[in-house]
Design a protein around this nucleic acid. Structure first.
Lengths: 125, 125
DNA sequence: AGTTGCGTTAGAGCGGACTCTAACTCATAG
DNA sequence: CTATGAGTTAGAGTCCGCTCTAACGCAACT
């Protein structure tokens, strides 16, 4: 089974070395296995998990919620609560999505008028 | 011309009294006119601006960028830089939008499997 | 006259999420 | 055999965006 150094893992999942260590410390991932020299050896499963965690973070799930979720997954139980957490976050994401779309409309309109102004100014000169 | 107390303004734009004062302090809005008693009187223009500001914040524009934008608008100049700021933020919003969509897919899949598990468990009992 | 309520200011404090530092251990290269 | 480099830990520090506090002013009610 192939495993990855912290550096490789960082590369693969787009997090910094600091973040990987910190995520492990706070229980957001792992505990990650160590090699004979005491260094982290990330498995593919670790990386998959990190990919999920990254997506959740990127979309604004609070670290504390992710900690709770990770804890439940590690314990192998609490399916109901896990479902709850995911559903709650999904609602959050949907809300945010709507807000982004709304804002995009406003931005497009504003950018349109500014660009129009610039064009007029140029043709006037 | 109708104007609004800080309380009414807060109600209308969904920000707290604290936030309205703070936004003014840091130059994100106003300066807001005062009545004879020294209290704020928000105009409709102020409220429109606050609505925009709120949208920008909700979609993650940094406060410092909004300060800069507000400063330019107040000065009445810097159309190019304003355009820049808006375009940059639009890119950011588009990026976020894509991330949210991506995450939503993952969430739906995960929620699907958890729900399926729960259903099976129930029917097994 | 006093107390209640809404407002004012400037500044301190807080919570979240990193981000960096110091001190240490190994392993390899020169 | 020492110096370089990649890793380890625990803890301190930083940045952002609020959020709260203290001390005060004014006006209306009782």
């Amino acid at each position: 089974m192939t495993t990855w150094s912290i550096r490789e893992a960082a590369e693969k999942c787009g997090l910094s070395l600091h973040m990987l260590r910190w995520y492990e410390r706070i229980g957001l991932v792992g505990p990650v296995a160590r090699g004979g020299d005491g260094r982290r050896r990330f498995t593919d499963a670790d990386l998959d998990w990190l990919t999920l965690v990254t997506k959740l973070r990127e979309t604004g799930m609070p670290v504390s919620d992710m900690q709770r979720y990770a804890e439940l997954v590690r314990s192998g139980a609490g399916e109901n609560e896990r479902l709850e957490l995911l559903k709650r976050h999904r609602e959050e994401v949907r809300r945010a999505l709507a807000a982004q779309r709304e804002c995009l409309k406003v931005l497009n309109a504003k950018i349109g008028t500014y660009s129009r102004l610039a064009r007029e100014e140029r043709s006037q000169a």
